[in-house]
């Protein structure tokens, strides 16, 4: 028997039903939920980030939700430290906790650790972004080749975000980003069971479209208007707000902006699915029986651990 507490992770693409499943599991297990969502950490944008509602939070205590100002920097490394601290407290009271979120970097940081990378300052971010916008991706790749040939060799060259991030980190750290990548998995003082609801893509996309509509009905437009003056912040450079800022600027009408939100959310979901497809530890659950199947697997796992 390992004697370790158990961390139950509920992850998956956006709108796949993570919140409902995590609440069902937490209620059945009698434990709290730690959010692993890079946007739900911020206050003032609960609608656009699909943060757990007041009612849901009354049913089960949630941690790491809405605790940061929009102007406060945050990173996967910061999340790793915060979540480990929260879990330390939770595991002192109960031998199980649930983590729920679709920010894959955050989930990976918590379950296996990530390499220590510096936080990017706004000045560095602006410098690299301005360069990219003025000179283009090829020039940025040429810069990366000079400052970190190894990363230039392995980076996804068709993905500007990856290239931008590699240059940003190298400049911020003062050493090549490739030298910071150890690939070492960190030992954790808990066992991990990682679940994902395996939903057919067409059904998932239908849920995304419906969610965008319900967000608009819940007041996303007003929420975006209230934070419009902070649009330069990285925390608001995200799906749901970018499109509405464009509407406020007169660049598109509201129907187009809403359609664009749904489309960009579907694109984001596809990226999440690609990331998940590489995760060999993921346990995929049928949507209709997800909670019951997960609880059965958890029970079996704990039984095996106890009798090992």
């Amino acid at each position: 028997m390992s004697g370790k507490p158990l961390l139950v992770v509920v992850t998956g693409p956006t709108a796949s039903g993570k919140t409902a499943l995590s609440i069902s599991l937490a209620e059945a297990l009698g434990c709290d939920i730690v959010s692993a969502d890079s946007r739900q950490v911020f206050r003032d944008i609960p609608i656009g980030t699909a943060a757990p509602s007041v009612e849901e939070r009354a049913r089960v205590p949630h941690h790491l939700v809405g605790f940061l100002g929009l102007d406060e920097p945050y990173s996967a490394a910061a999340f790793e430290a915060d979540a480990l601290r929260v879990l330390d407290g939770l595991f002192a009271r109960r031998q199980v906790a649930v983590v729920c979120g679709g920010s894959m970097m955050y989930v990976d940081a918590l379950t296996g650790g990530i390499d220590d990378m510096p936080s990017i300052t706004d000045a560095t971010r602006a410098r690299v972004r301005d360069f990219y916008e003025q000179q283009g991706l090829d020039a940025l790749l040429a810069w990366l080749e000079i400052i970190d040939p190894e990363m230039h060799r392995i980076v996804d060259r068709r993905n500007p975000k990856r290239v931008i991030h590699a240059v940003e980190i190298t400049l911020q750290a003062g050493v090549p980003v490739s030298s910071l990548r150890t690939g070492q998995k960190k030992e954790r003082p808990f066992d991990v069971l990682k679940f994902c609801i395996d939903m057919p893509r067409e059904r998932l996309f239908g849920r995304i479209n419906a969610r965008v509509e319900s967000m608009m009905q819940a007041g996303l437009l007003e929420e975006a208007r209230a934070v419009r003056h902070l649009r330069h912040l990285n925390s608001l450079n995200t799906v749901g707000y970018k499109e509405l800022f464009a509407f406020f600027d007169g660049l598109m009408d509201l129907d187009t902006a809403v359609a664009r939100i749904a489309k960009n959310t579907r694109v984001y979901a596809k990226k999440q699915l690609t990331w998940l497809s590489r995760d060999a530890d993921l346990i995929r659950l049928a949507p209709e029986t997800a909670a019951a199947d997960a609880l059965s697997i958890i029970k079996k796992f704990r039984h095996n651990e106890t009798n090992a």
């Binding site: 410098r127 301005d130 360069f131 003025q134 000179q135 020039a139 040429a142 810069w143 000079i146």
Partner: peptide, 14 residues
């Protein structure tokens, strides 16, 4: 020349 060109582009972007 490549390095000089990137350096020039970095300055132009600033």
């Amino acid at each position: 020349l490549t390095r000089a060109s990137i350096a020039r582009d970095v300055l132009l972007a600033e």
